[in-house]
Simulated scan of single mutants.
Amino acid sequence: MRTVAEVARMIDHSLLRPELTTGDIETGCALAARYRVASVCVRPADVPLAATALAGTGVLVGTVVGFPHGGNATAVKEAETRLAIEQGATEIDMVLNIGRLRSGQLDDVEADIRAVVTAAASAPVKVILENAYLTDEQKIAGCRAAERAGTRFVKTSTGFADGGATMADLRLMRATVSDTVEVKAAGGVRSLDTLLAMADLGVTRFGATVTDRILDDLDHRLRDRDGWTAA
């Protein structure tokens, strides 16, 4: 079984709900630092706060671009990306243009993604497909456009549509992109068993809001396996 530290480094702790207060963001960043997860993913306006809160912790600051619908003009997505990087973001989760993808306008989809990848410079970009709105053929086309555009990850969902990550979608995405592109699951990753099953498919990053529940569950299981008594 994977260690707590290994699983923690696969989690992007999500702080994207619109009602979250400044105090909620600070509390979430403290939780992320305590568990030493890969990153927090915050709303764009919260990037400076998160960057300050997480300085020196080793936890990265991620944010979203074109969120949650993907319909922003490309120039707006570029500007969002550049500002986020200037303010301390080190990872970018962008929503591709869902309507253009559904319309079969793949050149537009690819150009939109490439513009964000360029604006992000060395910061990894995760392209959100929002699979709940797509056919399998559209998911494949979106993944391939994202890879051609130079993305580091393809991602299932924003967590704000009717459906989130599914095992079938993750298999399809992992089979569609090359080994140089990683797969992120988001939306519905609410238990350790779900996360581990998805990891077995080759998923390497997870968006989660119940990070502490997942990692505490793993800690308890490992203690039980090794004959420890959980405190």
Rank of each mutant, 00 (worst) to 15 (best):
Q138W: 01
K139F: 00
K139Y: 00
I140F: 00
I140Y: 00
I140E: 05
A141S: 15
A141P: 14
A141V: 05
G142T: 00
G142V: 00
C143T: 00
C143M: 01
C143N: 00
R144V: 12
R144K: 14
R144I: 08
A145L: 08
A145N: 06
A145G: 11
A145W: 02
A146C: 06
A146T: 01
E147A: 02
E147L: 00
A149G: 13
T151S: 15
R152L: 12
R152D: 09
R152Q: 13
F153T: 05
V154F: 01
V154T: 03
V154W: 00
K155M: 13
K155G: 12
K155R: 08
T156K: 02
S157D: 13
S157W: 04
S157K: 05
T158L: 05
G159I: 00
F160G: 09
F160N: 10
A161E: 01
A161G: 03
A161P: 01
D162K: 12
D162V: 13
G163D: 13
G163W: 09
G164I: 02
T166E: 10
T166D: 09
T166K: 03
T166L: 12
M167D: 10
M167K: 10
M167A: 15
A168N: 11
D169Q: 12
L172Y: 02
M173F: 03
M173Q: 04
A175E: 15
V177D: 03
D179T: 12
T180E: 12
V181R: 01
E182I: 04
E182C: 13
E182L: 14
E182Q: 15
K184L: 09
K184T: 08
A185P: 14
A186L: 07
A186E: 06
A186F: 02
A186S: 15
G188W: 00
G188S: 09
G188Y: 02
G188R: 01
V189T: 09
V189K: 02
R190Y: 10
R190G: 11
S191R: 01
S191E: 08
S191L: 03
L192Y: 02
T194Y: 06
T194I: 15
T194G: 13
T194K: 15
T194H: 07
L195M: 15
L195F: 11
A199Q: 15
D200H: 12
V203W: 02
T204S: 14
T204Y: 01
R205H: 10
G207Y: 05
A208T: 09
A208Y: 01
T209G: 13
T209M: 11
V210E: 14
T211F: 04
D212N: 06
R213Y: 08
I214P: 06
I214W: 01
D216P: 05
D217C: 12
L218C: 06
H220M: 14
R221T: 10
